[in-house]
């Protein structure tokens, strides 16, 4: 056989390249276990504040009623200005984040231009739709939040998705996962009657609110970790501003959380 280069890619997207190379997981054809209830046991939240957008997620990973890991990172960096936060099956979600990250870079390198914001938002939607087979099998449901900074409009943008890939742009906040009901209630209350709308919050106020909201979710939802005071494990909190992504150090969160919560 002659050594050959891969067929000319042209404008092909990276997911298609992976599929051609057999590098994407195939949807199982048979559900051997009968019906499995889809779970999205976790709590993810994101809201816009004065400097940009804040994304936070608890650290607990569960399997049925077992806690399997208490240091999971569910807020994933996709590029310099984009975060994807996930509730759902970690294997599928992390794979999705990996495909997404590589897709954006592949696009930039082959097409010699950055993918547009709409293009990026749509790319995640397409991955979710392609994952529908897994969702129907009950083994791969993923419900993400996508946050990014729109450098043209100089504003943060926030999107949430359903498991089938429909995308919605959130004006102020979004939450997903098993504890999202409580978080949504907290954020809605704060935004409407909390004295200051979320968009006016300073960085420290925003971080404290995120920690408190997750703690509220954890108080009633066993699948959400919240703040683990004994082991000093804090949720992952990241912010996106015009300067890029910042991961908040645990020390700063501890100072804020312990200082204010008497």
């Amino acid at each position: 056989m002659q050594p050959a280069l891969p067929p000319a890619a042209g404008a092909e997207d990276f997911a298609a390249v992976l599929r051609r190379g057999g590098l994407l997981a195939n949807v199982p054809a048979v559900n051997a276990h009968g019906s499995i209830t889809p779970t999205d046991a976790t709590t993810i939240l994101a809201f816009k504040y004065a400097d940009g957008v804040l994304v936070a997620g608890d650290r607990r990973a569960t399997a049925a009623n077992q806690i399997v890991y208490d240091r999971a990172d569910k807020v994933l960096e996709i590029d310099r200005h984009s975060l994807m936060a996930i509730a759902g099956v970690p294997a599928t979600a992390w794979e999705m984040a990996r495909v997404l990250e590589h897709s954006f870079q592949f696009y930039r390198r082959t097409q010699l231009q950055e993918m547009s914001l709409d293009g990026k938002v749509r790319a995640l939607s397409k991955l979710l739709r392609d994952n529908l087979g897994f969702v129907l099998q009950g083994v791969g449901v993923v419900v993400p939040i996508f946050a990014t900074y729109d450098s043209e409009a100089e504003t943060a943008r926030l999107y949430f998705y359903d498991a089938m890939g429909a995308q919605f742009e959130a004006t102020d906040f979004a939450a997903t996962g098993s504890g999202s009901g409580a978080v949504r209630a907290v954020l809605h209350f704060e935004n409407s009657w909390g004295g200051k709308p979320l968009r006016k919050l300073k960085a420290d106020e925003a971080i404290l609110l995120a920690l408190r909201a997750l703690e509220t979710a954890a108080s009633s939802d066993s699948a959400t970790g919240g703040v683990d005071r004994r082991a000093d494990i804090f949720p992952i909190v990241k912010t996106i501003t015009s300067a890029g992504i910042e991961t908040l150090p645990e020390k700063r969160m501890a100072r804020l959380f312990k200082g204010k919560l008497v």
């Binding site: 891969p6 890619a9 990276f14 390249v17 590098l23 082959t110």
Partner: peptide
Amino acid sequence: ERLRLAAIELCSTEGFA
């Protein structure tokens, strides 16, 4: 262009896999 795209694809798939 053909060689550039092939090089990017070969590197990207290796980096991904």
